[in-house]
Amino acid sequence: MIKQTAIETAENFIEASFPRCASAVLAGSVVRGEATATSDLDIVIFTTCRESYRYSCIKDDWPIEVFVHNYNSYRAFLQSDYERAKPSLAKMITEGIILKEDGMFKKIKKEAADLLYLGTALWDANTIEMKRYFLTDVLDDLSGCKDRAEGVFIVQTLVERLGEFYLRTKGQWIGDSKWLLRALKTYDPHFASKLTDSLEEYYKKNSKAGLIALTYEVLLPYGGRLFAGFSLGKEKHEGGAE
């Protein structure tokens, strides 16, 4: 059986499952031209449901993820996108192909686009200090690690924390897994390349020098490594009994 095109499948799915929906958007990798053999269709539906929900299904050999909202529920998800700095729904609404719409959807699309343009809130000084401490912790783990298997797992954590720190201190969006790399490439392709090269150096040559140096470089403008003097919650107990 030959797969139908993504748009045909999405349109047929909407007609069969949500014929009375107000608006519908096809989003995801197929829209961005980045689809792979395992890509699914992300479809955002606006209808009269009481609460938002999501589910997965298969139609015409296409795996489909469905995100269903009403004209109020989406706001909480956009707010969550902003607070987590991971613009999942905002990107789907903004980048997606509109398959069905009413007058209200234009307003929602503009809200999502404005949110993406705004970016995330900068971390305050306390958050930066806390993140410096935890990034330093995993940096020290890698620096002292002599077990290759443990090192592989430590590096995963280091890259996640390093990417988050680099982007969030500049008010940029982040992401998980491949989305972290994409966020780095969007904001600073040179840094993304340095990080990728450092990872390749570790995996192929077991050399951690590049990752360690890059982490020091990122921490330096914020005071460098942080261990001595860091506290979390101690202030609540100052002056009290031990």
Results as ranks from 00 to 15, higher is better:
215 T>C: 15
106 K>W: 05
190 H>A: 15
159 V>K: 10
142 L>T: 03
24 A>I: 04
194 K>V: 00
197 D>E: 15
238 E>A: 09
184 L>R: 06
33 G>V: 09
110 K>E: 15
196 T>C: 01
172 Q>I: 00
238 E>K: 13
80 S>G: 07
176 D>H: 15
80 S>D: 12
68 V>G: 04
218 V>Q: 08
45 I>G: 08
198 S>D: 04
107 K>M: 08
8 E>A: 14
30 V>H: 13
40 D>A: 06
189 P>H: 07
161 R>D: 07
116 L>R: 07
8 E>D: 13
170 K>H: 15
146 K>D: 12
33 G>K: 06
67 F>R: 03
182 R>K: 14
169 T>H: 05
165 F>E: 08
241 A>Y: 08
216 Y>C: 01
98 I>R: 09
154 I>W: 06
213 A>I: 03
163 G>N: 01
4 Q>I: 01
51 E>G: 01
114 D>L: 14
202 Y>K: 01
87 P>Q: 08
125 A>R: 11
2 I>L: 11
6 A>Y: 03
238 E>S: 06
100 K>M: 12
217 E>A: 08
211 L>Q: 08
140 D>Q: 12
52 S>H: 11
160 E>Q: 12
138 V>M: 04
232 L>S: 10
175 G>L: 03
182 R>C: 00
222 Y>F: 15
167 L>W: 08
132 R>D: 01
111 E>D: 15
212 I>H: 03
159 V>N: 02
198 S>C: 13
209 A>S: 14
91 K>G: 01
100 K>D: 04
73 S>P: 02
152 V>N: 03
161 R>W: 05
40 D>P: 09
52 S>N: 12
103 G>I: 04
54 R>L: 02
103 G>A: 08
216 Y>K: 15
15 E>W: 00
152 V>A: 05
50 R>I: 10
183 A>R: 07
58 I>R: 11
133 Y>T: 00
218 V>L: 05
94 T>I: 04
80 S>K: 10
17 S>D: 07
87 P>H: 11
50 R>W: 02
107 K>P: 00
209 A>H: 09
149 A>R: 11
14 I>A: 03
43 I>N: 05
210 G>L: 05
132 R>T: 00
156 Q>E: 14
67 F>A: 06
168 R>E: 01
214 L>Q: 04
91 K>I: 11
16 A>V: 04
21 C>D: 03
203 Y>D: 03
91 K>M: 12
206 N>I: 02
97 I>F: 08
42 D>Q: 10
194 K>L: 13
193 S>G: 06
204 K>P: 00
102 D>Y: 07
233 G>K: 02
